[in-house]
Structure formats: C-alpha cells, structure tokens
Amino acid sequence: MSAAAKPDLKLVGTSPGGWEALRAAAEATARAEPRLASHLDAAILSRKDFAGALCVQIARKLGDTDLPAMSVREVCEEAVAADPAIVSAAMADLEAVLERDPASKGPLQPFLYFKGYQALQAHRVAHWLWREGREVLAFHFQSRVSELFQVDIHPAARLGRGLFFDHGTGIVIGETAVVGDDVSMLHAVTLGGTGAERGDRHPKIGNGVLLGAGAKVLGNITVGDEAKVASGSVVLKPVPARCTVAGVPARLVNCPAGEAPARTMDHTLAEVVYDFVI
C-alpha cells in the first residue's frame, strides 16, 4: 500500500461498510442492548472517525502485559496517519464481509467480533511496521494475532484490499506471499513454502481468487485472477486465470471457473475432471 494512497471516499459515507453505517449500527445496538452501551460508546460512538474506532478495536484485542492497549493504539494511530490506505483497505474488507458472508447481520458484528476481519486489520498495521524497518514490533503484532485468532500471517506478506477471511481459524500466509484484491479464503488455508528454501518461496494469488477451506498452495507459484481452488486441495503448480482446480495433487476441473468466484462464494465443481495434473 502506498503512503500516498487516499481512502476510497465512497466507503466513508453511508455504504454498508462505511463509518456512518457502523455508527448507526452501534447506536441501535446500544439502545436494544443497554448492557453493551458502555462498550459500544468506548469502542465506536465516542470516536470521531473509522480510523479512531479501528485503532481502539485493534488495541483492545492485542494489548497485553508486554505491550499495553494504549501502546498498541498509539502504534496503530501512527500507522494510519502515515498510510491512510490502511483505513481504506479496512473499509473495503468490511464491505467484502457484508457482501459475501450470509452470517453477517451488519457492519457491527464483523467489526467487533469476526476474528478473520480483525486479524487482517492487525496484519495491515504489522505490515506497515515491517516496511518501516521495525521488525521486532511487527513480529510482536504477528505473535499476538496468532495467539488470539489462530491466524498466522508473516508481517512481510503483501495483502490487497477487499479481502474476506471466512472463520479465519488456521489461515497461514508466508513471508513472501502476495495476495491480490477481492480474494476470499476460508479457514485452514495455507499459502506456504515447499521446504527450507530461502528467498521468494511463497504463492502469488491473483485478484478475485476463491480459496476453499483447507486449501494448501505451496511454493513460489501463481494462482491466476478469478481462479478457484477447491476445499482440501494441494496446489503445487501454477493455476491459470479463471480456472478451477481440485484434489491432491490439484487437477484442473474446469475453465473458466465461473464469473467472480470470490464474490459469489460458489464452491461447486464441474462434473467432468480433466485427465491431467497441472
């Protein structure tokens, strides 16, 4: 993310993942559930903007005796001030959850309680720290995210915007992995290496890719735009754009995979499997 990048203004207003929608949801919930009113006020209603609420939420989750919540919040505020694209991406991620997850009832639920969403936002701050050369603090963030959410993303990994981590549990993303925009992945996805090799050794995931539960993509290989990797597959060779792969090892199932699989969350497979390994 470029430090010069500007937030997407359409996400700041009344869109489902925008600040006004989040505040409205918090206000309605505070009225309906008075026992949560104090919490909602501290987390959202007393904040002046989405960035402030986001940093409070990250701090509430990651703070511990080693790095108190106030210190985490200060680091987050430093990051979003230096790189507004962190906030823009967080809003786009919230939009992605609301678009793709039928279990989500509004912006408040994922913002406060969905660990896939929260792990992703904490990673964005950790990645900023990594790019600033503050590697030890970046690793502290990674460690806390792994402990809390069971999501392990190396702080050097480069992730796009509009991402959806469904459930989140068990997701592992390696140091040199790159994930494009509008990608959806379910629990237990691994973007890993194939051994102890050094250097650029992790997958490159294109835009709009759907990675099913338990999918393993291993090595410095490319998964093309709008491809689909079926649940439980082990992918060891490049996947063409807009194709579906399935199995161990992964085989081509059909090309094209279908329009915008990451947005439709369509995990179905074609009946005929091509008789060759990719």
Rank of each mutant, 00 (worst) to 15 (best):
M91V: 07
A24M: 02
K228E: 11
A69S: 15
V179M: 05
K115D: 06
A42H: 13
V97I: 14
E95C: 02
D275R: 15
G116K: 00
L211I: 03
P84G: 09
Q118M: 09
F114K: 09
G199Y: 06
D49S: 12
S146Q: 06
A85T: 05
F276R: 15
T244F: 09
T222S: 13
R201L: 02
P102L: 14
G133C: 10
L191R: 07
G199P: 08
A5E: 08
T190G: 02
A90H: 03
P84K: 00
A25R: 07
D66G: 15
L120V: 05
A177K: 07
I153D: 04
L236Y: 10
L252S: 03
H154A: 09
A26Q: 01
F139G: 11
H123F: 10
V136K: 14
P249D: 01
S231Y: 12
K61S: 11
I58Y: 05
A28C: 09
A96L: 07
A257H: 12
G192T: 04
R134Q: 11
G18R: 01
E20H: 13
Q142P: 04
T29K: 14
P34T: 07
L120Y: 10
R242H: 12
H39P: 02
E95F: 02
A138H: 02
G63I: 08
W128M: 14
Y113S: 15
K204E: 04
D275A: 12
N254D: 11
S88R: 06
G208L: 03
V248E: 01
G224T: 10
G195E: 02
A126L: 02
A138C: 01
L191K: 09
N207P: 00
D182I: 00
L191I: 00
P7G: 00
V248Y: 03
S15P: 05
V136H: 11
H187E: 09
L22G: 00
D275N: 14
R201I: 04
A227K: 09
P240I: 01
F50M: 06
L9N: 05
L210Q: 02
E135S: 12
A37Q: 00
H167N: 14
I44N: 13
G206P: 05
V12S: 14
L137H: 04
P238G: 11
E74Q: 15
M265Y: 14
L236I: 13
L163S: 01
R60N: 14
